[in-house]
């Protein structure tokens, strides 16, 4: 976070991040986002000035108080109910494009 990437680096980074985030963005949008990223991260740079070497991260708001329930089977939602919101279904299954032979 201390290096100064070029504008082209930033645009390339936005495209890489967009791919990781499963977002399809155009080149104009990537250029705009790269500029916004730079200004947002610039605002956040103060974080780097703090000494946090002896500080534990705050990862859970409820601490060790996690509530559990008995490990017994309970009724679950009917398939028809859960599939009602699906854009495409095939019987009791969600229908998706073919995956075999695709990328990644």
């Amino acid at each position: 976070m201390n290096s100064e990437p070029t504008a082209a680096d930033q645009v390339a980074l936005v495209h890489t991040i967009a791919r990781l985030a499963r977002l399809e963005i155009g080149s104009d949008e990537a250029t705009a986002l790269a500029g916004q990223f730079t200004s947002i991260l610039q605002q956040f740079r103060g974080l780097a000035s703090l000494d946090v070497t002896e500080v534990e991260p705050l990862v859970s708001m409820s601490g060790a108080e996690s509530v559990t329930r008995a490990d017994v089977p309970e009724p679950s939602f009917a398939p028809d109910l859960m599939l009602a919101a699906a854009p495409e279904r095939d019987g009791d299954f969600y229908r998706v494009p073919k995956t075999v032979g695709g990328e990644e």
Binding site: A21, R22, L23, E24, I25, V96, P97, K98, T99, G102, E103, E104
Partner: peptide, 11 residues
């Protein structure tokens, strides 16, 4: 493709 559908839907 599946990945293409994910990305286009989210976009």
């Amino acid at each position: 493709s599946l990945q293409g559908m994910f990305a286009a839907t989210r976009e």
